[in-house]
Computed example of a mutant assay.
Amino acid sequence: MAKGGARARSGPAPDPNALRRERDAGEWTVLPVAGRTGAPPAWPLSDQTAREKKLWTSLWAKPQGLMWERYGQELEVALYVRRFTEAELMDSRVNLSTLVRQMADSLGLTTPGMRANRWRIDRSENGDERRPAPTGRPASGGRVSARDRLKVIGGGG
């Protein structure tokens, strides 16, 4: 068994809301909340079922569809749809559900998958992503003591 060295998804997940986000702001792709418009691509596999067609259409309308289209991932999405519909069946194998979750991660359909791909969905009202104000730092740029950073959450009395 291999020891040491970097591993996929090792360490903390990238955080788009980190206090020093400006250092890697250019690495994140902001996807519009409205999603991808237009018809989904042609189904690349054989014999699409009605359930597969419905799921295929809904997935391509998601914001992630823009990135799948950019990177030509029609086949990957179709395989995910096929495995997903198989995993929905009552007599499906447990490991199929694990595969579906892994595929969802790689396609950016889960929160960890979105972070791993460095995608985030713009949920601001007018399309301008507003950065949260850093907490625990005074406007003057000086240091704040640990005591000053503490905040009372509920006053029991």
Rank of each mutant, 00 (worst) to 15 (best):
V77C: 06
S10R: 08
P63K: 02
W43L: 08
L96C: 06
V144C: 07
K54N: 08
R7L: 07
L99E: 11
G4A: 11
A50D: 10
W60Y: 05
T135D: 14
A6C: 09
A2P: 12
W56S: 08
A18D: 02
G156E: 07
G155Q: 07
K151D: 03
E52M: 12
G5Q: 04
L75V: 13
G35H: 03
L107G: 09
K62F: 05
D91S: 14
R101G: 10
Q48N: 05
M1S: 14
R21D: 04
R21A: 03
D105N: 12
D128C: 02
L89R: 15
P14V: 03
E125S: 10
A87E: 05
A18K: 10
Q102P: 00
L59V: 12
R70Y: 08
K53E: 13
G11E: 01
T98I: 13
T85M: 05
G113A: 02
A8T: 10
G142Q: 11
R83D: 15
A2V: 08
E88V: 15
G4Y: 12
R36L: 01
E52Q: 15
A2H: 08
A42T: 14
K151E: 12
L99S: 08
A6Y: 07
T49A: 15
M103G: 07
L96M: 11
L89H: 14
N117I: 00
W28S: 03
D24Y: 01
D15I: 00
Q48A: 14
L79A: 10
G127H: 04
A78D: 13
R130T: 15
W43D: 11
R130F: 05
G38L: 04
I153Y: 02
K62I: 01
L75W: 01
A13G: 03
S58V: 02
Q102F: 04
R20S: 06
R82V: 13
G136I: 04
L45M: 10
S10G: 13
E22L: 13
A25F: 02
R130W: 08
S106I: 02
R130V: 15
G38I: 12
V152S: 07
E22K: 03
G4L: 12
R9G: 06
P40L: 13
K151Q: 11
K53T: 14
Q73P: 12
G141V: 09
A116Y: 00
T110S: 08
A6K: 13
S92T: 12
W56K: 04
